[in-house]
């Protein structure tokens, strides 16, 4: 008899989370204002997200646990985004008219405010263009990582997790 090949989840073989594996905050919560989404599905020895959150909204069982966000407690302050060494946390905010803001950690040459950039999905493919709304430099960040906030059309908020400068 032929042995069945062991199924390996996509995130382990390809290195990205398929959208259905992401614990996205409820849509109504994103309409109320910024809220964190953590894309860290693996049991690794790491806890700065939990430790850095000023309101105790991030929970993990022990240092090897998988972190989860209490979206009711979370204020969307992005402190965890700045502190996570895995650059695995983003904040999403759909409270403005006609679009959403995504705040992402960024350790490359920073764009300018107002610059148009490519908005990329988890595989690095451009899904739309975006405008840079806010920048927090490494020096001003609570965790030594700069963050960039971009504005995108609402339908891409589940997908956009990175930017690429166009020039």
């Amino acid at each position: 008899m032929k042995r069945r090949k062991e199924e390996i989840p996509l995130w382990q073989s390809k290195g990205y989370l398929p959208a259905e594996r992401v614990n996205l905050p409820p849509g109504e919560r994103m309409l109320e204002g910024p809220v964190a989404v953590i894309e860290c599905p693996q049991r690794i020895p790491c806890d700065p997200c939990e430790e850095s959150c000023p309101v105790g909204a991030i929970h993990m069982e022990d240092i090897n646990g998988v972190p989860t966000v209490d979206t009711e407690k979370c204020t969307g302050c992005s402190i965890c985004v700045e502190n996570c060494p895995g650059l695995a946390i983003f904040t999403l905010d759909c409270s403005m008219e006609g679009g959403c803001e995504v705040t992402l950690p960024y350790e490359f040459k920073l764009p300018e405010i107002g610059e148009e950039v490519s908005a990329l999905n988890r595989k690095g493919e451009e899904v739309t263009k975006a405008r840079v709304k806010k920048i927090k430099t490494k020096e001003n960040s609570s965790g030594d990582t700069s963050t960039v906030t971009i504005e995108i059309p609402e339908e891409y908020v589940k997908e956009v997790r990175n930017i690429r400068r166009m020039k």
Binding site: S13, K14, G15, C40, A88, L120, R122, N162
Partner: peptide, 24 residues
């Protein structure tokens, strides 16, 4: 190997820039 040996979060950072990780 058929799976990524390092931490997923390190792999995800590269994938977001379009770097292919060719397991197997």
């Amino acid at each position: 190997a058929p799976r990524i040996g390092g931490y997923f979060v390190h792999a995800a950072k590269l994938r977001r820039f379009g770097v292919p990780i060719l397991t197997g």
